[in-house]
Nucleic acid binder design. Structure first.
Length: 888
RNA sequence: GCUCGCUUAGCUCAGUUGGUUAGAGCGCUUCGUUGACAUCGAAGAGGUCACUAGUUCGAAUCUAGUAGCGAGUACCA
């Protein structure tokens, strides 16, 4: 066996799991030691097909694979289904860019030609991301892998669209949308990122038609839109403007005459109290325009340049960019003496997520999905706890979003994606929505809608389409739907999670998953977001290369707490690598004398154990496995790791193995048994290292994977006696070690002690563990009672097994170096116990406490007081003697 | 603006229904290789649990408010 844990075993075991098909739920389940009639399903949030694995993915895979392996080992038939997303916008951008480097304008290829390029691109990159997913040791079912553009999935998407259309939920309309001038496509509300930007508010004077010497001042952050103004609105209750309502204004530059109207939407207290109305370029103004029946005057081309044919002076500005037009308008107002003033203003500007430029509210014909009904049902499912969101903080966010949702614009002016199954007749203008193209006829000349669907439309169907829907009898759908857990980052709660809930509720009237677990964001050690430009990216692939997948998985799990970002650093990775190494070496130690053995008796829990530490470690094993199962059941990932860390490192290695060195072959089977259980418990986190170690255990056959062993449930009776007795043992050892350390006596120096005042139980514990105690505390001899009269001794109390009682340890001063040091030490001890005793007395003297606290709490406090008093008395008496000697 | 989260040891953080002397790792101090591990072991120092008020016999934990930081979100022209 290697002297230290190294990651060289990763590939070997990944191949082993593949070869044995242990990620296929049916196969693994059939081979499980104790299979249950239960299923677990987790669908991997599909990474972008051309993406590169980042820490967010690594965290996702680490958590999901851990949960899946844990379920599988618990005897549950577990599906972990992998896949990738076609990422319409992202991939189209990549391919366009790629073609451009070869000097090819993608438009010149035509739609078909371009799509072929996309498929070539994808076929090249898809294996890369899959390989990266595998490198984490991800035990997902590759035989079921899905891509959102697979033929069957496309069928499902088309079916869904047509069905939603039939139900009147999908509709086409001309509305104001978020338009990306750079991308030349519409975006959904979610794809618009609001950024704070320093800007200005321009106050413009609009002259009245009947008396140009009078004017109304309007304020705007976007003066160029005045070219499309159709009215000026004031608040109906605004006395300042009451007499203007119904009058007209001559719009400067373009010379159009527009009305002054009253509308409730205007806040008289804000700005000048008068608002210019531009229905074609502002969402609020659009609403006002609809209410008043105004024309929608579009002033921009799709590239956000001024259209030709604007009236007046603006006619000459055709083709100007929107921001140049802004300057022109302001200049012109200035020249006309109509610029009232300019104020600085911090405003939030909507920018496109992909291209980064400012999004333009733009009039356009698009396909929409009606949201109100679907959102209400989704919200109801969450409210009724049919879906539990963890951490719970996201529950409210989810509900709020569902309540304020707008119809979802699902069409995109792109080529890469699912083309919308709508057919327009060039002759009659009719529109037919159908899964297959309608037949051509002399009267009808059909052409398919050129737009594709928003990527998230197909993602929203992921739980259905990956399991075989729309075939409602598909076996996977029946067996694994609804899925158990959706694990993902909170950044896509609305993009994806909410849409899945809505879509699935709509189509199968059943939630897609019972629980949603939102993992935190991975940041660098200083809490900064990782980004290439900051140069603080910790590449998971490099970590896997350097530390091994197990270390990365364990680290991410170990740092994953709810409600706080996860700060990753190489320091942490070193720490968790050391943990794996510790287990590695513990195994090395346990198996030292077992080379070549095929004895499998250790696999069963030893029925009769004699030594206290053997009983204790089995009791702790039960406790730890119960805690572990509970932690994972509640997605407390760090708590699970901490439980294991403490149990393995402190309890098993530092205490148990050290004790077992004194009892040798008596403990041999317990050592191996507990170690085997530890490997099982660690396996979901560190599959490679544990599988390697497991296969080194005596008698384990090559085909016996840890993956199909029974996960420890901690169902045994908790041996609370062993726990309490060993606590006493630990205190004894600890107190003696402290004495040595503080008396500057070498730990290796064996000293002789007496134990006084022990009750029967404490005495039994010491007697039965005599050899272990002598070895752990390094004693030369251990006797009962007091040291021979006349020998100068120090004495100190240790809490006994008997509640509230103490035993006294007697050590001849001849064993120690310095009497004064010991006096100091005891004085410190005394003062701390005196404080405890007096605060305890105060508590119990409080009538309110004694009258109102539950009796068991009071009893506990009384026992404590008894113990503190006992210790105080004992130390006082020892001190008196020692102090007398110091003086003497 | 609204909503939510965070504030605990020098640093990074745990702390699950309110109840032992508030924990862990790193760092620091002292000491140490008995059959695994120096990626190790033992002992120790270090905290008025952000602040204020309240509920309670009892608050790091529950409530309200304040301050600082962060996130999400809104139509302020």
């Amino acid at each position: 066996m290697d002297k230290a844990y190294e990651k060289q075993h990763d590939k070997k075991w990944q191949k082993f799991w593949d070869d044995e098909r242990l990620a296929v739920p049916e196969v693994a389940h059939a081979r499980h030691a104790a299979p249950l009639e239960k299923t677990f399903a987790l669908l991997m949030p599909p990474p972008n097909v051309t993406g590169v694995l980042h820490q967010g993915h690594a965290l996702m895979l680490a958590l999901e694979d851990t949960l899946t392996r844990w379920n599988r080992m618990s005897g549950i038939e577990a599906l972990y289904l992998p896949g990738t997303d076609h990422a319409s916008i992202a991939v189209q951008m990549q391919v366009v860019k790629h073609l451009a480097t070869k000097g090819i304008d993608h438009r010149s290829l035509g739609r078909e030609g371009f799509l072929k390029e996309c498929w070539d691109w994808i076929n090249e990159y898809r294996p890369r991301i899959y390989g990266q997913v595998r490198s984490m040791g991800t035990n997902c079912d590759w035989e079921r892998v899905k891509f959102t553009m697979d033929a069957e999935l496309n069928k499902g998407v088309t079916h869904a669209f047509v069905e939603l259309y039939k139900r009147g939920l999908v509709y086409r309309a001309e509305k104001l949308v978020n338009w990306s001038p750079k991308g030349q496509t519409v975006l959904s509300d979610l794809e618009v990122i609001f950024k704070e930007q320093k800007g200005h508010i321009w106050h413009l004077k609009y002259p009245l038609a009947h008396d140009p010497s009078q004017h109304i001042v309007v304020a705007t952050t976007r003066p160029e839109t005045m070219l499309g103004d159709v009215a000026v609105a004031v608040s109906p209750s605004d006395e300042r403007y009451k007499h203007f309502v119904g009058k007209k204004i001559i719009l400067p530059i373009v010379g159009r005459e527009i009305p002054i109207i009253a509308d409730e939407f205007v806040d008289a207290a804000f700005g000048t109290g008068a608002v210019k109305i531009t229905p074609a370029h502002d969402f609020n103004d659009f609403e006002v325009g609809e209410r008043h029946g105004f024309a929608r005057l579009n002033i921009f081309t799709p590239e956000a340049k001024l259209v030709p044919n604007l009236p007046g002076k603006a006619a000459a500005w055709a083709g100007l960019d929107r921001f140049i037009a802004r300057d022109k308008v302001v200049e012109e107002f200035q020249a006309l003496g109509l610029l009232d003033r300019i104020e600085d203003h911090l405003n939030r500007v909507g920018t496109s997520e992909r291209w980064g430029e400012i999004v333009e509210p733009y009039l356009s014909h698009q396909w929409f999905l009606k949201m109100d009904g679907m959102a209400a049902r989704a919200a109801e499912a969450v409210r009724a706890k049919r879906i539990e969101i963890v951490p719970h903080e996201f529950h409210n966010q989810f509900m709020r979003w569902m309540e304020n949702i707008h119809d979802w614009c699902i069409s995109r002016q792109l080529w890469w994606g699912q083309q919308i199954p709508a057919y327009h007749c060039r002759k009659t203008g009719e529109v037919v929505v159908s899964e297959t193209p309608p037949p051509a006829s002399p009267k009808h000349d059909w052409v398919q809608d050129p737009d594709v669907l928003d990527t998230w439309f197909s993602s929203g169907l992921w739980p259905l389409t990956t399991l075989g829907w729309p075939n409602v009898k598909a076996e996977d759908l029946r067996k694994f739907y609804p899925t158990s857990v959706l694990e993902t980052g909170f950044d896509i709660l609305f993009f994806w999670v909410a849409r899945m809930v809505m879509m699935c509720m709509e189509f199968v009237d059943e939630v897609p998953f019972k629980k949603v677990y939102m993992h935190p964001m991975v940041r660098d050690e200083n809490g900064q977001k990782m980004s290439k430009s900051k140069g603080n990216v910790i590449d998971p692939l490099e970590i896997v290369e350097e530390f091994g997948a197990d270390t990365l998985r364990l680290t991410l799990n170990g740092l994953c707490v709810q409600g706080r970002d996860l700060r990753l650093s190489t320091e942490r990775l070193d720490f968790y690598r050391a943990f794996i190494n510790k287990i590695w070496n513990a195994t090395r130690f346990a198996l030292m004398k077992s080379e070549g053995s095929t004895d499998r008796t250790w696999m069963k829990r030893p029925a009769r154990v004699t030594h206290l530490h053997d009983r204790w470690i089995l009791a702790r094993l039960d406790e730890a496995s119960r805690d572990l199962n509970k932690a994972w059941g509640e997605f407390r990932m760090q708590e699970a790791v901490d439980t294991l860390y403490h149990f393995i490192w402190s309890d098993f290695c530092d205490w148990y193995l050290e004790c077992a060195k004194a009892t040798r072959e008596d403990s041999d089977n317990v050592v191996k048994h507990v170690l085997g259980e530890i490997l099982k418990m660690m396996h979901p986190l560190c599959p490679h290292a544990t599988e390697e170690l497991w296969h080194g255990m005596p008698g384990v056959k090559i085909e016996e994977s840890l993956l199909v062993q029974s996960f420890p449930q901690g169902e045994g009776f908790p041996d609370t006696e062993a726990l309490a007795e060993f606590k006493f043992f630990q205190d004894l050892v600890g107190q003696i070690r402290t004495l040595k350390a503080e008396s500057k006596v070498a730990p290796s120096k064996a000293i002789r002690i007496w134990i006084k005042d022990a009750g029967p139980l404490s005495q039994k514990v010491v007697e039965s563990s005599r050899a272990t105690l002598i070895s752990m505390a390094r004693l030369s001899d251990l006797s009962w009672g007091d040291a021979p009269a006349g020998a100068a001794c120090t004495r100190f109390p240790v809490s006994a097994v008997e509640a509230g009682k103490t035993v006294e340890i007697v050590v001849p001063m001849s064993e120690l170096k310095d009497l004064a040091d010991e006096v100091d030490r005891l004085r410190k001890e005394l003062s701390s116990f005196e404080k405890l005793a007096s605060s305890q007395e105060g508590k119990l003297a409080n009538k309110n406490f004694v009258d109102r606290a539950p009796p068991e709490v009071i009893d506990k406090e009384k026992i404590k007081l008894e113990e503190y008093r006992d210790k105080v008395a004992k130390i006082q008496s020892t001190l008196k003697q020692l102090e007398a000697q110091v003086k003497g």
